[in-house]
Amino acid sequence: MPPSSRIPPLLQPYVGLPKDKSILLLTSTLGASANWLVIRFLCDALNTTHNGGEGGGEGANVVLVSCMREHEFWKQEARKGGGLDLEKCRREGTFAFVDALSALFLDAPPQGVGVGMGTQAARAPQTLPLRGAPPGRTVLVREPPAAAARQGAQTDPAGNKTASASSSTPAGLYTLQSADVAHLKATVLTALSHVCTNGRKTLLVLDNPDVLIATSATPTRTLTSLMSLLLTLHTQIPHILVHTQSDDPLLTLSSPQQPIEHAQHNFLVKLAHMSRRILSVRVLDTGVARDVSGVLRITENTSSVGGTGLIPKDEEERETDKGGTEVLYRIGGDGGVKVFERGAGES
């Protein structure tokens, strides 16, 4: 089965990358995971068998930075849900993965420099592959290893860190050694040089970078440097997809304000202001249903200040602004996804 056919037709226009530079925002809540949607984005970008008449893009290289899941998880999900062989794409130089989880937050000590594929495979049974909407996202115990990593980062000279991160065993697999944003930038740029060889566009997927804010001792400062990093990378990378959490407890401020709530709220709001398309996944408002996994809301914002759309166009040239849409989705046991309008699900 070619990967493109795994993308539901209703979803197809929204997982395609826009023509010009863009930041896309993907938000999810605890009950409704958006990993399946990330996989669909990967499918659309990495799929090389685009037939020209479809109007889809010519595909893109992908750098995936994941702060919540390991490489093994994404590999399995992509194969199961999208029919996509990430391993092959990586060897071909169209895909690179930055692991921002293992060395920072997991207890297992990194064996040597960088986590090799062998250790990943041996640990595979520990990670539960996510099927459909999980009842609860497993929040990992973060603080002690993160603190340890940070202490290590403080003692190590900066140049040493970068070198150790870049020298991962298989090409295209990188592991983040410290939660420092400058280090993240260096690693992403190294990963970018791995994929940026065939002249196609590049898509950077940042999966849950808000974890870096939440685990930081100074959330506000991390927020600032993370936003700065994002825009700096955006000058080099045409498309950036950010996946972040939009749960109420993270966004509504208690009184007195907690720095972490404040930083998380502003991170989401600022990203939403910058982004061209917002895809929000949430649970059904009316409660749990057997045949619906969740609701996907898509809103578009086509222009930016002083950028595209500055020169007015005629009625005919103008892109028809569809406004927002809302669709329901259901994730099957086999990893396949059905996307349908409200009331159009099979009875």
Binding site: S246, D248, A272, V281, G323, G324
Partner: peptide, 18 residues
Amino acid sequence: GLLQGAEGIVQALDANDH
């Protein structure tokens, strides 16, 4: 939008009216 009170909604459907 964010004030709507439903968890997970970031932007209103009819935001940025064309």
